[in-house]
Design a protein around this nucleic acid. Sequence first.
DNA 1: AGCGGTCCTTGATCCAGGTCAAGCTTTCCG
DNA 2: CGGAAAGCTTGACCTGGATCAAGGACCGCT
Lengths: 246, 246
Amino acid sequence: MSVPLLKNEGCPTCPIRNRAVCSRCDAGERDELDSVKFYRTVAAGDTIVLAGQTTDFVASVVTGVATQEQTMPDGRVQMVGLLLPADFIGRPGRSEASYDVVATTEMVLCCFRRRPFEQLIQQMPHIGQRLLEMTLDELDAAREWMLLLGRKTAREKIASLLTMIARRMAALDARRFTGQVTFDLPLTREAIANYLGLTIETVSRQFTNLRKDGLIVLEGKRRVHIPDLDALILETGDDTDGGMLA
Amino acid sequence: MSVPLLKNEGCPTCPIRNRAVCSRCDAGERDELDSVKFYRTVAAGDTIVLAGQTTDFVASVVTGVATQEQTMPDGRVQMVGLLLPADFIGRPGRSEASYDVVATTEMVLCCFRRRPFEQLIQQMPHIGQRLLEMTLDELDAAREWMLLLGRKTAREKIASLLTMIARRMAALDARRFTGQVTFDLPLTREAIANYLGLTIETVSRQFTNLRKDGLIVLEGKRRVHIPDLDALILETGDDTDGGMLA
DNA sequence: AGCGGTCCTTGATCCAGGTCAAGCTTTCCG
DNA sequence: CGGAAAGCTTGACCTGGATCAAGGACCGCT
């Protein structure tokens, strides 16, 4: 409830202007987009999109964190994506969502009305190109996650998640790693379990193990301090020999 | 070794002309593409792209089947995609591959030289639009696979794989389901295990179980007959109540 | 301060799927 | 045709993570 409304601030001060779908657009193109755009604030816990429902907008995440998840008929849940600032919500060309999008923190969204946005994609190749690039990045991330889900142990999964969040948070901060990182986990144990294909008990136990091994320091339940990121990376299974990753 | 060379047949008789990246192109645009295009035949087992290496082409699969897989430093393997005719190989805008692409059958590829193809994307929105659409489809498929890897049982995984292949094969055949389907599995047990995040022993046992339960009939090791596709779909976990899927 | 709810941790036990081992079937050579 | 390799199946056993169960920590609320 403490997030300022951005209604009239617009693009010049937008924190994601260099990374979002619109990042390639020039001033004129941003004006065009402006005409189909509106800001929206959603509360933590709100469902932004429901699988199987149609939505009449697409959006960029300006601030906050959301999850994308699929639910099986018997209630099993798998998270399939984490949405951080600059990420895109919705699929142009298809109005029916294939998974739920749920805010895990309060969020500010930069929404575009679907139909006109779809038309603008045709007219303004800068948007389509950026969207293609972002979608390809997401596909790469999804495939890395498939490796995690299919082949990694519980400990490797937790280490991978912490490493990934540390990297993405650091990238948003526009600072580089110093080897030490501290951040607030934007996910509950349940969300983590659903992301990693584990139960919350196993998540909890592995956090405890990593803590006992000195790889992480927990301050409260949510704040995580990583004293040596390279040491944690060694636990992800991605890197057997201690060298640098690609 | 029995695949005819398509060198001079070209687009008019191309079996994937309505589904590939180029499917939106008009005659003139196809002529442009033609100038950067070459056909290539690869043998079963050949590695088409190696993770971490740069490739100077992108391609459409014309005939045959390939797998995309990631390997961990200690040798664990996870398949992250199955490439059937019309699917696209390579990532425009990045020459370094992030996973291996391996032919599982003999294949014919329609290759485009990377640099000029990337330029054509800028000039010809029809290609970029189709590529975006195909990439979004792949992303949806990857996320469905994440649900499978993270939350499904071994039996559900096998049933899901068979269902998926039956669907895709049927779509290629341009015939509709009659409830009965027969096809040749284009994958070894090892490839299936790597796709599903299982061991080959578990794959083998689940095949046996499904056979004993009358859900599939095996003719030799590779040919699979599904007497009642709906019954198999019930085993995928996607559908608890026997109704139709979206 | 007391109370109910949500979230997290820890322990005890179980079991699906992994591991190890043996043998079978098919293919493909010479 | 015979022999070897590759791929598949089956059995016996083991174990990592799930399940079941109990309680602890930290809210916000009255």
